[in-house]
Simulated scan of single mutants.
Amino acid sequence: MVKVLMIEDDEELAEILSEYLQRFNIETVNVPDPFLGLSKLETQPFDLVILDLSLPGMDGLDVCEQIRKRNDIPIIISSARNDLTDKIVGLEKGADDYLPKPYDPRELVARIKTILRRIGREKSEDSKNSAELRFDKNSRMIYFRGEPLHLTAAEYGILTYLLEHANEVVSREDLIYNVDAIHEDSSLKSIDVIISRIRHKLEDNPKQPRFIRSVRGLGYRLTP
């Protein structure tokens, strides 16, 4: 479930939005006080912040700035202040989106999902890259130490899957059923052969691999 912190002093509106978002598997914790909101971000994990601007004790733009100094969490400003300057300043201070009130709650749901999809893609891309191994989504190429690797379809599929699950143990069965270029009737031994070929393209000493290591009885782990 997605967990959202809403910093909103209109408690009636916050309750309406919270009930609506719940339908879409989005749990909302609302606080009317900006200082309490900043404190909760320090002590609890959240996926996104919905931030009003007209708050007691601290302007929402300052709250946005404080959040961004401490955290890279996505921020949607939700405000009745329709001044273009507020929107520009809010985005400059680190907000990811600005939604002027009043709005249809369906639009808020759409904005939340769009931002989280984008963040998810960025994290996925980061997880595929390291100082030595880099996956380029656009060209569908894998680079090793700055040079493109020349891989067969099966080698490319297996290495991509290992990169997506870097530092996790991946079984041979996982590779057979999740890599399109591998036929489901392939033997476990055939996976070992392909892994060996990949090692020869990555490792200085394939017999003592540093990147793709065997985990006895379980499978393989890629440590990029």
Rank of each mutant, 00 (worst) to 15 (best):
M1L: 03
V2D: 09
I7K: 02
D10F: 11
E11D: 14
E12N: 13
E12F: 14
E12V: 14
E15L: 11
I16W: 15
Y20R: 01
Y20K: 01
F24H: 07
E27V: 15
E27H: 12
T28E: 01
N30L: 14
F35A: 12
L36I: 13
L38K: 08
L41E: 14
T43G: 10
Q44Y: 15
P45D: 15
D47M: 07
V49K: 14
I50A: 11
I50S: 10
L51A: 01
L51S: 00
L53M: 10
G57C: 12
G57H: 15
L61Q: 06
D62L: 09
V63C: 06
C64M: 03
C64P: 00
C64V: 07
C64L: 13
I73W: 04
P74G: 06
I75H: 06
I75V: 11
A80K: 15
A80R: 15
D83M: 09
D83N: 12
T85N: 14
T85K: 15
D86T: 04
D86L: 05
D86P: 03
D86S: 07
K87P: 08
K87D: 03
E92Y: 00
K93G: 10
A95H: 02
A95M: 00
D97G: 01
Y98W: 03
P100R: 05
P102Y: 00
P102H: 06
D104H: 10
E107A: 15
E107R: 13
V109W: 00
A110P: 06
T114K: 10
L116E: 01
R118P: 09
K128E: 02
N129T: 00
N129I: 01
S130V: 01
A131M: 08
K137C: 13
K137T: 11
S139A: 12
S139V: 14
F144S: 06
F144M: 00
R145M: 06
R145A: 08
R145Q: 01
G146L: 00
E147V: 12
L149V: 01
L149K: 04
H150K: 12
T152H: 07
A154D: 05
A154H: 04
Y156K: 09
I158Y: 09
Y161W: 08
L163R: 13
H165L: 02
N167W: 11
E168H: 06
V169K: 07
V170M: 12
E173D: 07
E173W: 04
D174R: 05
I176Y: 05
V179E: 04
D180G: 07
I182T: 05
S187E: 00
I191W: 04
V193M: 04
V193N: 06
I194T: 02
I195Y: 00
R197M: 10
R199F: 05
R199Q: 03
K201D: 02
E203L: 08
E203A: 09
D204N: 07
Q208Y: 07
P209K: 05
R213C: 04
Y220G: 01
L222P: 05
L222A: 00
P224T: 11
